[in-house]
Computed example of a mutant assay.
Amino acid sequence: MNILLIEKEEAIIQILEAFFMKEKWNYDIATDGVIGTKMYSLNKNKYNLVLVDVELPSLDGVEVVKYIRNISLETPILVLAEKKFEEELISSLQQGADGYLARPFSPLLMVARIKALYRRINLERGKRVNLNIEQVICTKYLKIYPEKHKVIFNKQEINSLSPKEFAILTILASSPTQVFSRKKLLELVWGNEYFGDARTIDTHVKTLRQKLEKVGPHVIITVWGVGYKYDELNFDI
């Protein structure tokens, strides 16, 4: 395991270092956002995971997540922040972070989250469970090429989807008009070891809709009290 920790507080760095060493994980440390993004850009194939503090000097954590996602859609990112920074946590998820830990958190929980995320990422890369990764998904107005991470909607390519947005769209579009509960989407996209809540799905669906609706109508439908579905029934171009 090679981890990039972008964190400004020395006390937290020392605590995390102790647990990294106990797990025999390799790690690099940056104490501000600009240094962190430079380190990542120079070693993007090195890191298995990035831990990012929301409150960073020079460049805040949300911008760091955005920068990393512009370089790579694959590297897992966990965001660290106090609960009072809910808006920043939501923004980081919208920019492509895979999850967050709210302070104060147990270092043991952090280690468990890292291990769970690492296992899930490797499973997705190796088997692509539940995403029909070998097949092109095609509806009347949508084509998804899973192996290429490519989406064409209303005859236009959408190249700004985060890995989670891509996975949610793939699941919904693979079974048009079927309603998926938030819990089921969490299980399919994040895995059974996810520690968050259903609002995470709502955040990603919101940004996914915004990106699709820049080029076409509303096709991801909310079924109130249940979940979401992909439906082109009222899609008339």
Rank of each mutant, 00 (worst) to 15 (best):
K229T: 08
G33W: 00
F166T: 10
L49Q: 07
K115S: 09
K115D: 11
L16N: 14
I152P: 00
K44F: 14
L212K: 05
I13H: 13
L169H: 13
G61Q: 10
S162K: 11
E87L: 14
N130H: 06
I144T: 01
E124G: 06
K184A: 05
L4Y: 03
K44Q: 11
K214G: 10
A81Y: 10
E74D: 13
L42I: 09
L123T: 06
E17V: 14
D197P: 04
L93T: 09
W25H: 10
E74N: 11
F105H: 06
Y141S: 05
Q94H: 12
R128N: 01
N159C: 08
S41V: 11
A102V: 11
I144A: 05
K38A: 13
V219W: 07
L109F: 08
T170C: 02
K140W: 07
I3Q: 10
L233I: 11
F195D: 04
S174F: 09
L188E: 02
A30R: 14
V205E: 01
V205F: 02
W224Y: 05
F166K: 01
V219D: 02
I12P: 00
K229Q: 05
D28W: 14
E193D: 11
E87P: 08
V179H: 12
S106E: 11
I71T: 01
L117Y: 08
I12T: 15
P163E: 07
T139G: 03
E88R: 03
I6F: 03
Q178V: 04
A97T: 09
E88Q: 09
A198G: 03
Y40W: 12
N130T: 02
A97I: 13
L73F: 12
A173Y: 11
E193P: 04
V215H: 15
Q178A: 09
R125T: 05
R209E: 02
G126H: 06
V129F: 13
G225P: 01
N43D: 15
V54M: 10
Q135T: 15
L161V: 10
R103T: 01
L42H: 15
I221W: 10
K183Q: 10
V62K: 10
I15E: 01
H218V: 00
I114C: 03
R128W: 02
L108D: 05
F19W: 11
K206A: 15
A97N: 05
Q14R: 15
I71Y: 05
V62Q: 05
K211G: 12
F153K: 05
L172S: 13
Q156P: 04
L109E: 08
T207G: 14
L188G: 06
V79W: 03
M1C: 05
F180L: 00
E87G: 14
D202W: 12
K22R: 09
R199Q: 03
L208T: 09
V136K: 08
N2F: 14
K214V: 11
L89G: 04
Y145C: 04
G227A: 01
I90M: 08
G191A: 07
P217R: 06
L73C: 08
N122K: 12
T170Y: 06
Y194K: 10
I12H: 10
V215C: 13
E63N: 08
A198D: 02
L51K: 09
N70L: 06
P163C: 12
